[in-house]
């Protein structure tokens, strides 16, 4: 769980600026993923969660400038030359995207797609690469037959398994999964998540799971980071965080999610919208929408402080301690 054997991903103080934005899109992200660990990165659109995960492969938007360190197995991604970067993307870290149909060439057979990267970058013979592709397809529960099929002949769930197999081709230490099940049906989602979990255990891979679904994050991860407007609002072990959220944003998200246990009626919606990138922010980024805002919230940026008697949890809220009991009422119960 949180006693990392070896830190696979160690991101420190990552800041990312985009041209035309009034504030950094990522404003100092500290995030780690250990070997065999599942870490969920939760947030709404525009929070920066996808940018955070993509920056691990240095897949940055045009014109982006960065500060900070993204160490994958000890090597800083932001300082890599082209050759090292190619090695990282082929062998060390792999990404699974939300929409498998947008991430695969519909005119090429699945077998070509799976072996392409290894054939080009790892000097593997075609036969060895094809053999590995068949093994990986087997690991994700698909038969060898799929090698000769085209993406259009596969269902969304099968295609996402192909994407997972392709992520495993280079035997990566880290898998970055960006909403990998959002486009899938709920029963298919369960299957894909179960599969990812199996493979993580079997291959010792670290998994960074980006999602907007708090229930899913709670269900699958060891630790969770909640992001808001380019910052980490709160982080800690999944169970403790969803049982006793300590940031008003985490609590508000939990309350506004329609759940099976909540009866019919109005939800506790969060008023307003996330701040636009054209606005500069002083103080806490959530202050404008928070129900507990006081003058200090709009004046001073809250630092990340450990939660009392729970040193593995960090929260960035001026009033976290005094609000603890109120926020706990939003807990995610079974």
């Amino acid at each position: 769980m949180t006693t990392p054997a070896e830190t696979t991903l160690d991101m420190r103080g990552l800041r990312l600026h985009l041209p035309g934005a009034a504030r950094p899109v990522l404003a100092g992200i500290d995030l780690t993923v250990a070997e065999r660990e599942t870490v969920a990165l939760v947030g709404e659109s525009g929070s920066g969660k996808s940018l955070t995960s993509r920056s691990v492969l240095r897949l940055l938007p045009p014109g982006a400038t960065t500060e900070g360190v993204i160490a994958v197995q000890g090597e800083d991604v932001l300082a890599m030359n082209a050759k090292r970067l190619r090695h990282l993307r082929t062998h060390t870290a792999a990404m699974i995207f939300q929409d498998p149909r947008a991430a695969i060439n519909p005119l090429r057979r699945v077998g070509d797609f799976l072996t392409e990267s290894l054939r080009l970058n790892a000097d593997l013979s075609d036969d060895t690469a094809a053999e590995r592709a068949a093994r990986m397809l087997d690991a994700v529960g698909l038969g060898e037959r799929v090698l000769g099929q085209y993406p259009g002949q596969l269902s969304g769930g099968m295609l996402q398994r192909v994407m997972i197999a392709s992520a495993l081709m280079g035997d990566p230490a880290l898998i970055l999964a960006d909403e990998p099940t959002t486009a899938l049906d709920v029963t298919t989602q369960a299957e894909v998540v179960g599969l990812l979990d199996d493979l993580r255990e079997r291959f010792g891979t670290g998994l960074l799971f980006v999602t907007h679904d708090l229930g899913l994050a709670a269900a699958i991860s060891d630790r969770v980071y909640v992001m808001y407007a380019g910052r980490i609002a709160e982080t800690g072990p999944a169970q403790a965080m969803f049982e006793r959220p300590r940031h008003p944003y985490t609590a508000a998200l939990l309350r506004s999610t329609p759940r099976l246990a909540t009866p019919q009626g109005r939800l506790a919606a969060i008023k307003g919208q996330p701040p636009s990138l054209r606005e500069e922010l002083t103080g806490c980024p959530f202050a404008a929408r928070c129900a507990f805002t006081t003058p200090v919230c709009t004046e001073e940026l809250p630092p990340h402080v450990p939660v009392r008697s729970e040193p593995t949890r960090l929260v960035a809220c001026h009033h976290s301690d005094e609000l603890a009991d109120q926020l706990a009422e939003s807990a995610l119960h079974d």
Partner: peptide
């Protein structure tokens, strides 16, 4: 099956896959 598939704490995706 649909109800069991809703992710929540303590959720077991492998059971769901088997039930499916």
């Amino acid at each position: 099956l649909l109800l069991d598939s809703v992710p929540r704490p303590g959720w077991n995706p492998k059971h769901i896959a088997a039930a499916r």
